[in-house]
Amino acid sequence: MNRRDLLAAALAAGGPWARRAQAQEAARTVTLIHGFAPGGPADGIARLVAGPLGEALHQTVVVDPRPGAGGNIAAATLSRANPDGSVIGLVTGGHAVTAAFGRNQNYEPIDDFEPLSQLVRYAFVLVVRADNPARDLATALRTAGASRNGWQFGSAGSGTTQHLAGELLNSMAGLQMVHVPYRGDAASITAVLTGEIPLAITAANVAIPMQQSGQVHLLATTGQNRSVGLPDVPTVSEAALPGYDAATWAGLLAPRGTPRAVVARLNAAAVAAVRDSSVRTRLADLVDGEVVGGTPEALRELMTGEIARWRSLIRDRRIALE
């Protein structure tokens, strides 16, 4: 019997052994890794959740950013971690996009992990410069289709969810807008401001301050429902393309082989963390989206469906990484 089995048996038995096992468990630190730069949206989600997650677990949760390779470095690290609950990871919709592109990965995007809980779901926004004559999405799409040189759309990088959100727009609108990748959301929206490109698909928390200062105009959001923080901005589905949905998400994973009891404990802690009213409000404000807190099975289903969906678009549109 290994250490994890002994610990589980002690907890089940109760009495002094259980109290000792619980004390040992509480003394351990949980590392929460993610594959994004410090200060970005994913890092913000991780740091916001870490405190209440630690409180629910009666352990300290330390955020450990491992940026690089579109999140692959962090995901590969997580896949090789000891499956005892001491290391968990935060991934976003980019985890499914990376898998859909079939990038050279040192891990299996579904089979090498134990899903814990989806945390949030949130949309992107379609942004044009404030002086752009197109004041609604339908007009923008007609203008893009009629333009002799065509329109370009910018994203946070090749192979990102923002990139595929634009390609889905192309597919459903029958357009051939050229994708221009940038190094992050801020760079893509800056390109709109300088006139380098007419349109960017970017994170709401980057676009909203520029809208409030009168620098940009928001044509639409990419999710199924209107954004709470942008109630006057229609969805793409409402504005022009019924059925369009290109939201993203963030969730927690553990390494494959993590015992069911540990998965259940981590799931319960994650759900408790995001259901705290203060945390829920701050998370919703951070991503301008919906706070979820679901089951491991629901997160597995989401990841599987997202990979299949984006893989189909990539194949049909013959999208290549740039």
Rank of each mutant, 00 (worst) to 15 (best):
G174N: 10
R121C: 05
S147I: 04
T304N: 11
Q224Y: 06
Q118V: 04
N2F: 03
V97P: 09
Q105H: 03
R265P: 07
T98D: 14
A207M: 09
Q176R: 06
R282P: 07
G89D: 12
E167I: 12
A284L: 01
I73F: 05
T161C: 13
A27K: 12
R66Q: 13
I88H: 00
P255V: 06
G71A: 13
T222P: 09
A273T: 09
R3L: 15
T235F: 03
G184I: 10
A18F: 03
A46P: 09
L116D: 12
D43H: 06
N132S: 15
S213P: 03
A187T: 04
N132Y: 02
H95R: 11
G14S: 13
T281Q: 14
R28F: 06
N149V: 09
A268Q: 09
A46M: 11
S213D: 13
A207E: 04
Q212Y: 00
R183Y: 10
T161W: 02
P38T: 12
E167H: 14
A8Q: 11
D5W: 02
D84F: 01
L164N: 03
P259V: 02
E322C: 01
F124L: 10
D84C: 02
Q224D: 13
R20Y: 07
L119Q: 11
T98V: 14
S158I: 01
V30S: 05
Q105P: 00
T31E: 14
V30E: 14
T295C: 10
V279S: 07
T161F: 04
P133F: 00
W151K: 05
G89H: 03
T98I: 14
G89F: 05
A12N: 09
F124Y: 12
A247V: 06
T248Y: 08
Q211R: 12
L313I: 07
A187W: 07
R129L: 00
L218P: 09
A23P: 11
D64C: 06
A18Y: 07
T221F: 00
A250K: 01
Q152V: 09
M210Y: 05
G251C: 11
H58E: 15
S117Y: 07
D43G: 15
L48I: 12
G293E: 06
N106T: 14
S237N: 08
G174P: 06
G39P: 10
A308I: 10
P133D: 13
L241T: 08
D5Q: 15
A140K: 12
M172V: 13
G145V: 15
Y182T: 14
E196C: 05
G159W: 13
T235Y: 00
V287F: 01
R148D: 13
L218E: 09
M172N: 04
A273I: 14
Y107F: 15
V30W: 04
G154L: 05
L241Y: 01
V180W: 04
P296C: 00
I197N: 13
R121K: 08
Q22A: 15
V279R: 08
V61S: 04
R311A: 12
S237C: 00
R309D: 15
V180P: 14
